[in-house]
């Protein structure tokens, strides 16, 4: 019986292809009441850099900073950029509204938006 409970637990969290707040313990959702994300900009930049590196079309040698532009520096076309932004969305469990996403051209702009959005984690 105990075993079964333990076994059920990981499968609950693992299904989170569609992640949502309410599966998590309630205390962690306290951060939702702050106006901005609890993540630091450095942390966001590092995680975005990791996403870009695992995104196979990019030149991996390029060192990624806030100034890195998706099209100019990474050589991404408009379709690639869309795909990269979706990967970043997945990484931070958020969805960029279309109007925001259309204007995101660099790592720095993306970091700013994520830092200002309370849902990001």
């Amino acid at each position: 019986m105990f075993r079964s409970v333990f076994r059920a637990a990981p499968s609950l969290t693992r299904v989170s292809g569609l992640r949502s707040g309410f599966v998590k313990p309630t205390f962690s959702s306290a951060s939702r009441f702050y106006a901005s994300s609890s993540l630091s900009k450095e942390e966001i930049t590092t995680r975005i850099a990791d996403v870009i590196k695992s995104f196979d079309k990019t030149a991996s040698a390029t060192s990624i900073t806030a100034n890195t532009q998706f099209s100019k520096d990474l050589g991404l076309d408009s379709l690639d950029t869309v795909e990269l932004l979706v990967s970043i969305e997945e990484e931070f469990d958020i969805e960029f509204p279309d109007k925001v996403a259309d204007e995101l051209k660099s790592v720095g702009e993306t970091v700013e938006y994520i830092a200002s959005s309370p849902e990001a984690n």
Partner: peptide
């Protein structure tokens, strides 16, 4: 997805 999770998910790595 979450509602139906435990009834229908047959993934159970450990098993």
């Amino acid at each position: 997805a979450e509602d139906l999770t435990l009834e229908t998910h047959t993934d159970n790595q450990a098993a």
